[in-house]
């Protein structure tokens, strides 16, 4: 039981962080604070992916030692044979699990790293677009509190309705 909790405690902590970000996103009325909450949420998801890619006893996915100088070496042929016949490959997978056969060292999974690396850069790009929209909202409304903006919008809509339908009762 304790081992089960220890093995998944990271996920639960990350979910907790994610929910704090979500709460900030929901509860704050200030638009910039909301964007910060969104970026906390996003960073937590990145943490989750990266913690899935870790392998016990592994190291950063940068080849070193014997693995780095393998231009046509012994295990180069092995790797070529590996993807020449899928059956051998699957058998080797079953035998060794994720331990990188033909490799001297164990490396953590590089694929989530690549996906999250680009996600971080795209995240800052979307954040900047959001901030630009917030700046324009500030210039148009004079405030960045979402409830005040909603009230102003409602007032304008009611005034327009009253103008278009003179003599009618106020719908609100």
């Amino acid at each position: 039981m304790l081992e089960f909790i220890l093995e998944r405690g990271n996920y639960w902590a990350i979910i907790g962080l994610m929910m704090i970000g979500l709460y900030t996103l929901f509860a704050a009325t200030n638009l910039i604070k909301r964007l910060v909450g969104l970026s906390i949420f996003q960073t937590s998801i990145i943490l989750f992916y990266i913690s899935l890619s870790r392998i016990d006893g592994g190291t950063a996915p940068i080849l070193y030692g014997e693995d780095a100088k393998s231009h046509g070496g012994g295990h180069g042929e092995e790797a070529a044979a590996g993807h020449a016949s899928d059956a051998t490959h699957a058998a080797a997978d079953a035998a060794h699990g994720a331990v990188n056969h033909g490799m001297e060292h164990i490396y953590s999974n590089p694929l989530p790293h690549v996906l999250m690396l680009t996600a971080i850069v795209v995240g800052v790009a979307t954040l900047s677009v959001g901030l630009a929209i917030v700046v324009r909202i500030r210039e148009a409304y004079g405030t960045i509190e979402s409830d005040e903006i909603r009230e102003m919008d409602l007032d304008v809509a009611l005034a327009e309705y009253a103008e278009d339908h003179p003599g009618e009762a106020n719908p609100a």
Partner: peptide
């Protein structure tokens, strides 16, 4: 956490 045999760590990553 850190399982080398998890589906995420076995196929395309290796």
């Amino acid at each position: 956490f850190g399982d080398p045999d998890s589906p995420a760590n076995t196929y395309v990553g290796t």
